[in-house]
Design a binder for these strands. Structure first.
Lengths: 163, 163
DNA sequence: TGAATTAAGTTAACATGTTAAGTATACTTC
DNA sequence: GAAGTATACTTAACATGTTAACTTAATTCA
């Protein structure tokens, strides 16, 4: 009896790992997007950068990192690749020589125009299967979670720095 | 006017990227767990493997991959490292020479016993900040999403294979 | 103004993610 | 029972994740 209870608890503890549940949900979606992106010769992260530039052109690396949710070293490598493929163009900020400013080339814009509809199609399929209402609720909860937990983290950092 | 609408749409399209929202939520949680794990000399993935073995000892690599949600090549490398650190012991399945069976060493169990309480403390803090009720709802939605989307994907694969 | 500090990127080093190919063992089927 | 197929990993190759260190340019402030 004691053994049974103990094992069940371990199992439940393990099951309730939030980061892993978030990862599983994410993976189930990415399993659909990844093959499509691959057909276009892109990784998920490269596509995030291209999307961010398509939404707002001429932004610097820091802002691009924030919007594509990539760490600076990853972004550096990805931008080097995208530049080599002539999908992205780098220029420099006249007011701040430390900053690099990026934009899509014509080739990059064309690629975005080809991939975006495929992405949208897959997204709509997911929305239909899961339900638009539940999906909306999920978005809300995720945003709220992120704001609560990341913001509290900020607070912790700030208070630590203030000591 | 047309330009304004178009830009707004781009922005909204970009914002509603579900995989990225899931990633952001996950990252906000991992930002808390990672430093703690680091203090114990573990990566997130190594900890997932140790947790899985603590919950159910003597399991083979395939089952371990499923439970720790790692791809086989990653798991191979992680197990090689954990073996070298003498945290995990490998044995072979007498009934199937292809299979490897893994278990925690005494050292591995001690490490688990040290890390688990720290993990639990952080988890409880998150639960308190976000709210147990909302967290429960988030779990439910994530599980439902995963089952719907990953299961449908299975169906697609099966029907494709059946052709 | 010149030294100290901060900010923006980049590079380095190692771990993991992802796909494809390889190896050894088990199974199936003719 | 030998050939063909499937299973269970492992290795390889390249991309990204993560932390720390480094470089250069801007800023602060004594």
């Amino acid at each position: 009896m004691a053994n049974t209870r103990k094992d069940a608890n371990h199992l439940r503890d393990f099951e309730r790992s939030l980061p892993m549940e978030l990862l599983k949900a994410r993976e189930s979606a990415m399993a659909r997007f990844r093959p499509m992106l691959r057909d276009h010769g892109l990784t998920e992260q490269q596509w995030r950068v291209i999307r961010a530039l398509a939404a707002l052109d001429q932004i610097n690396a820091s802002e691009l990192a924030r919007r594509s949710f990539l760490l600076a070293p990853s972004l550096t490598r990805i931008l080097q690749y995208l530049e080599a493929e002539k999908l992205v163009k780098r220029s420099s900020d006249a007011n701040d020589q430390r900053r690099a400013v990026f934009s899509l080339t014509a080739k990059g814009k064309k690629l975005f125009a080809r991939v975006a509809p495929d992405s949208e199609t897959l997204y709509i399929k997911i929305e239909q299967e899961f339900g638009a209402d539940k999906l909306g609720l999920l978005y809300e909860l995720l945003a709220e979670f992120y704001q609560t937990i990341a913001a509290e983290e900020e607070t912790n950092i700030s208070s630590a720095a203030a000591r």
